[in-house]
Design a protein around this nucleic acid. Structure first.
Lengths: 163, 163
DNA sequence: AATAACCTTGACGTACGGGTTAGATTCTGG
DNA sequence: CCAGAATCTAACCCGTACGTCAAGGTTATT
């Protein structure tokens, strides 16, 4: 019944250096609540657990959290969007999984096609945002030039009146 | 007491072709509720009104709404952020306003400096997003290439086994 | 075995960005 | 002058993305 500390009931075979929720929170900058929330919403796969029930995250989980945050804060996707994206990405895991028994080739094809579709949509979104951001940058710089012109004008007037 | 329709109690002197809330909503693609909400939150200056109380918007108001939407959906700014931005932009109106009586030069300077500061922060944000989006696009395209490679592999296998 | 530090699952609260409904008022076309 | 369309304010409701306790279980240290 009793096991040594740090021995595990569930964690995968590979001793990969697992992290508890607090460490993951600290390293990713999100709260523990957020990590549980993402799990609840299906954005993070349920991590392995220590026998007592403590969550044990892998480095891959950390990377996924960072990716989620980038997609969310930099690109403005909703968690629902992001869920679709990470799900499409799971085909890597699924395809490299044990059922490599060459059967179901058309099934594999379908999954890859789906992943390609989702990825292409993402590229389109990114392209659109890049274009809009480019426009925006140009107009912001125009504005800056205008403001600087105004300052210059004020400088001239000041110089003139102080003469 | 009674006045002809389309005569106005408040609308600015210039007869510029004013729009009621429904038309603005239709043209900008936001709801009437959203327009009132933005006004409530200080994102839109209170528009002029018809004597009965109906809002009358200008073309500038329409442009501002479109800008707000771009900032929000494309760039992911919160309405609070956007409020700060549009406030900084109001200096144009303020500076070109009637009090051109050359007094308060240092005050004008300060306002322009503030606008420049805010604009520069926006440029920095835009640059950061451009960079991140660039990275993201590169990695998405790498992924696509990988997926396409997988499909090619499956094609080969299929061709071989059908021989 | 006691204690601190960490973790667990609820459950409720909150800020944001609006949607919806209701009932009254106003405008416009005939 | 009046019907019907458009607008008004006010109030309440909603989904998203978490924050914040509360009450207890687990792990590491002493």
């Amino acid at each position: 019944m009793t096991q040594k500390r740090s021995a595990s009931a569930e964690p995968p075979p590979q001793a990969e250096a697992y992290l508890q929720i607090g460490e993951v929170a600290e390293r990713t900058g999100v709260t523990q609540r957020t990590l549980r929330f993402y799990e609840e919403k299906g954005l993070l796969k349920p991590p392995s657990r220590l026998e007592g029930g403590f969550r044990l995250y892998s480095e891959d989980d950390v990377k996924r959290v960072e990716q989620i945050k980038r997609l969310q804060t930099l690109l403005g996707f909703t968690l629902a969007d992001i869920k679709e994206m990470v799900e499409a990405e799971e085909i890597k895991t699924q395809l490299h999984a044990e059922y490599r028994k060459d059967a179901e080739i058309s099934e594999r094809r379908a999954k890859i096609a789906k992943a390609i579709e989702v990825t292409e949509r993402q590229v389109a979104v990114v392209d659109q945002k890049l274009a809009s951001l480019g426009d925006m940058k140009a107009s912001l710089e125009q504005k800056l030039a205008k403001y600087r012109g105004w300052v210059a004008q004020l400088d001239e007037k000041a110089a003139a009146s102080s003469q």
